[in-house]
């Protein structure tokens, strides 16, 4: 920065121009999607000039029709997905906070070695697990149920355990010691003292756990067999591959799929952006 005010104003307005242009590249496609979602059946979609924003003739009932379409019941898909998401969040929070607490505070033989193992498991490409896990779940009779998609969450996730462990180590120990002196056992200390203090890091885990299971396609595609068990991701993927889908309903359903992550994004933007950033920087 040269500090000369004229060039400052110039580069400032150039930056705004660029930012505005880039913002439009994000917003226009989303606007187009809403426009198409609100159109009546068989109305022309690929018009020239393109209709980027809805102007009139809004068919809000398209959302209801997409949700209750008997061939592809998106309401059903949404509820199915929410069940999987909720169980993943519950499982992740319970298991990862327990294990994170053990690695942060409890001394036991082999702890450092096991923590090293935990870090190594972060590096394992999960491709190699696909086939053997499938065969295992198949033998257990879990094929065709949601069990393969939710049970592993109750056994901890290396990355979330790592985050929680790091966080607990930054907490002062005095409160835990005081609780111990007052006669709390380990579980009570964990439950009444540590867990409430961990709220910020648990929120990060909840947000990411929500997004991963809500957005997951490969898992449900491998394990779910019946249309009435499908998740939103499979529903969308199947709907688009059908010949000549009704584009207004396709986009309405797609919008329904995008809403929960977007709402989450506006509620927890700091946590989300901070979480993604912490993956990429040192320390």
């Amino acid at each position: 920065m040269t500090g000369r005010s004229a060039s400052r104003v110039m580069s400032g307005s150039l930056a705004y121009l660029l930012l505005l242009a880039l913002s439009f590249t994000i917003l226009l496609p989303l606007g187009w999607m809403i426009t198409v979602a609100l159109k009546p059946d068989y109305a022309p979609v690929f018009t020239s000039p393109t209709q980027w924003f809805p102007t009139g003739d809004w068919h809000w009932e398209n959302f209801g029709r997409a949700l209750s379409d008997p061939a592809r019941p998106f309401l059903r898909y949404t509820l199915n997905t929410l069940v999987i998401v909720a169980l993943n969040i519950v499982g992740t929070v319970i298991s990862c906070s327990l294990v994170g607490y053990a690695f942060a505070r409890l001394r036991f033989r082999g702890r450092e070695f096991l923590f090293g193992v935990l870090i190594v498991t972060l590096l394992i490409p999960w491709h190699v697990l696909l086939i053997p896990q499938f065969l295992m779940y198949f033998k257990l009779g879990w094929y065709g149920t949601i069990l393969p998609l939710v049970v592993p969450a109750f056994f901890g996730n290396a990355f979330f355990i790592f985050l929680i462990r790091q966080y607990i180590r930054t907490l002062p120990r005095e409160l835990e010691l005081a609780a111990t002196v007052d006669g709390c056992n380990r579980l009570q200390v964990f439950w009444h003292v540590v867990l409430p203090l961990c709220r910020p890091v648990l929120a990060v885990c909840v947000v990411f756990s929500f997004l991963t299971s809500w957005n997951d396609l490969l898992g449900p595609l491998i394990y779910l067999l019946r249309n009435e068990d499908y998740t939103v991701a499979i529903g969308m993927a199947n709907m688009v591959s059908r010949a000549n889908p009704k584009l207004n309903l396709l986009m309405a359903a797609n919008l329904i799929m995008m809403v929960p992550p977007i709402v989450l994004y506006f509620v927890a933007q700091e946590k989300l952006v901070g979480g993604i950033a912490s993956v990429g920087i040192k320390g």
Binding site: I26, M33, W214, N254, Y265, L272
Partner: peptide, 20 residues
């Protein structure tokens, strides 16, 4: 605005772009 696509699923983004 510009970070928004970070939360959208590959499926939803791909469905939108398959038409765009």
């Amino acid at each position: 605005i510009l970070f928004l696509p970070a939360v959208l699923s590959g499926v939803a983004v791909a469905v939108l772009w398959s038409q765009l």
